[in-house]
């Protein structure tokens, strides 16, 4: 898929107020349902297992994974976030951001890692840095003021950046929050992208 072209097509269609209101509504249902499905599959949990962890009935999970269902309550989402041990952000955004999210969707952006998995990943990046030439890159990321995930990740970057590595990277290192397994493997092996 040509994501630039699709983004333009979508933004053009969003000029219609009725369409964009409907798109927002549809996106909420579809996105939440697909994330519940994707995260549950990543953990290899059945609907019953998720239901037990979230204190709900299995039939409720089945309904929540139906993209046609749009009546989510914040309370339900908070319970699911807790069961998955992931963060939940509910916020208003410009349509450009929505279009960006939608056209760049990927399995990894849907099936987000748990807090424990994030910590493991953070440790791997830190360990990789001790073998690789990424100090300058990390310092520039820190200096740019770009938010780097949670405080834990920020501290990890700082720790690594101050660790004293000398060679300059030729390309950007993968973001630990979004890097593909292959990219992470390369970092661990001390290679740039």
């Amino acid at each position: 898929m040509n994501t630039d072209l699709i983004r333009l097509q979508l933004i053009n269609k969003l000029r219609n107020k009725n369409y964009r209101d409907s798109f927002v509504s549809a996106h909420i249902g579809t996105n939440i349902a697909s994330q519940i499905f994707a995260i549950r599959n990543r953990r290899r949990w059945t609907q019953t297992e998720l239901a037990d962890k979230a204190g709900m009935a299995q039939t409720r999970i089945s309904v929540l994974e139906d993209a046609n269902y749009e009546n989510f309550s914040i309370m339900t989402l908070k319970r699911l976030a807790s069961a998955f041990d992931v963060a939940l952000i509910v916020r208003f955004v410009p349509f450009g951001e929505l279009a960006e999210w939608v056209v760049n969707l990927s399995p990894s952006s849907l099936a987000v890692p748990s807090f424990a998995e994030e910590q493991e990943r953070s440790f791997s990046i830190s360990e990789a840095a001790s073998r690789g030439p990424i100090r300058e890159e990390l310092e520039s990321v820190l200096a740019s003021g770009i938010p780097i995930g949670t405080g834990i990740f920020r501290e990890t970057y700082k720790e690594v950046a101050l660790g004293g590595y000398h060679e300059l990277p030729t390309e950007r290192i993968p973001d630990p929050l979004t890097a593909s397994p292959r990219q992470r493997q390369r970092v661990v092996a001390g290679q740039s992208q």
Binding site: I6, A33, S34, A38, A67, N104, L105, S106
Partner: peptide, 20 residues
Amino acid sequence: QAKIDARLLQMAGMESWPEK
């Protein structure tokens, strides 16, 4: 139209699709 577009775009980014 919005609902179908949203669905197709979402499905495009998923590895597999829920049975419902």
